[in-house]
């Protein structure tokens, strides 16, 4: 538990310093800060992985089962996707836009109870691994798309800025990167919804019952489906599509945090109608 906590805190601190590095790069416009930022986020990712691995060993299961564990894994998914996309597309400024999202989720995780509890009966299913781990990568990919889309909007607004022109790819490339992240996230989200439906059928008897979590996954799926279609329409491929990608991530955050905390449904595991639902 101590190793897990310390690793998580180290990871959090390194992510914060990394963000500082990227923001310095963005504001002071010196490339060396981006190098520091990139290095720090990778070290942070190592500690983050160690923290999750330690918890997996301690709990004797994958850490995907409660608010803390999923938020922690969600943040890890964003970090993993960020490192992969930064390496693949050499986007030095990406950190300035994705790390705030990563830290938002990581801080949310830090606020949750870290106690390791035995799995409640409804969560004792092999489908939890497919359902939640694909959600981690899906949400991670969508976070990247959101960050890249914000870069797109900034690039579009500051067309004459020399620093932006040097360090941000052109609009078409940003649009394609965002599209690719969303394509990956969309496939994963579809797997999340389908695996969730199969699991719900086994646990609750119905594969779809408009539970708020299901409903918001459906809403998010619709938003990204519309995004993928409107990109093909003239006049929508550019800034409007970028805003759509940002809206999609807002929906992701609400699906994850808002639904669990504000709406009552099976995913909030409430006591229902006097029975203790199992």
């Amino acid at each position: 538990m101590m190793l897990e906590n310390q690793s998580f805190n180290f990871a959090l601190a390194l992510y914060i310093f990394s963000l500082v590095g990227y923001l310095c790069f963005f504001t002071l416009r010196k490339e060396k800060y981006a190098v520091y930022g990139s290095m720090l986020v990778k070290f942070g990712f190592l500690f983050h992985t160690l923290s999750l691995a330690t918890r997996a060993v301690e709990a004797s299961r994958l850490p995907l089962s409660n608010q803390y564990e999923f938020a922690n894994s969600f943040a890890w998914g964003i970090a993993f996707s960020f490192i992969a996309f930064e390496w693949r597309y050499k986007l030095k400024l990406l950190g300035s836009f994705v790390l705030p999202l990563l830290l938002l989720v990581a801080f949310y995780a830090a606020m949750q109870s870290k106690e390791i509890m035995p799995l409640m009966p409804a969560l004792q299913s092999k489908w939890i691994v497919v359902h939640v781990s694909t959600a981690v990568f899906s949400y991670g990919a969508f976070a990247i798309a959101c960050g890249v889309s914000i870069m797109y909007i900034i690039r579009d607004r500051l067309r004459e800025d020399r620093f932006i022109n040097k360090h941000l790819p052109n609009l078409r490339v940003l649009d394609i990167i965002s599209y690719r992240a969303i394509a990956l996230g969309f496939i994963m989200l579809t797997v999340v919804i389908v695996s969730g439906a199969i699991w719900a059928e086994r646990a609750w008897g119905r594969y779809w019952q408009w539970d708020p979590k299901e409903t918001w996954s459906f809403i998010t799926w619709i938003i990204y489906a519309i995004y993928l279609h409107v990109r093909l329409t003239k006049g929508w491929k550019d800034k409007k599509a970028a805003w759509f990608a940002v809206l999609g991530f807002v929906s992701i955050i609400f699906t994850y945090i808002g639904v669990n905390t504000l709406l009552v449904g099976y995913h909030s595991y409430a006591i229902f109608l006097g029975f203790r639902w199992v």
């Binding site: 004792q124 229902f272 199992v278």
Partner: peptide, 20 residues
Amino acid sequence: LYVNNPFRYKGYSFYQTATG
């Protein structure tokens, strides 16, 4: 039958849903 393991018979499924 238990939670996540319904009992099935000729298209009917029985789910452990609640207790009291």
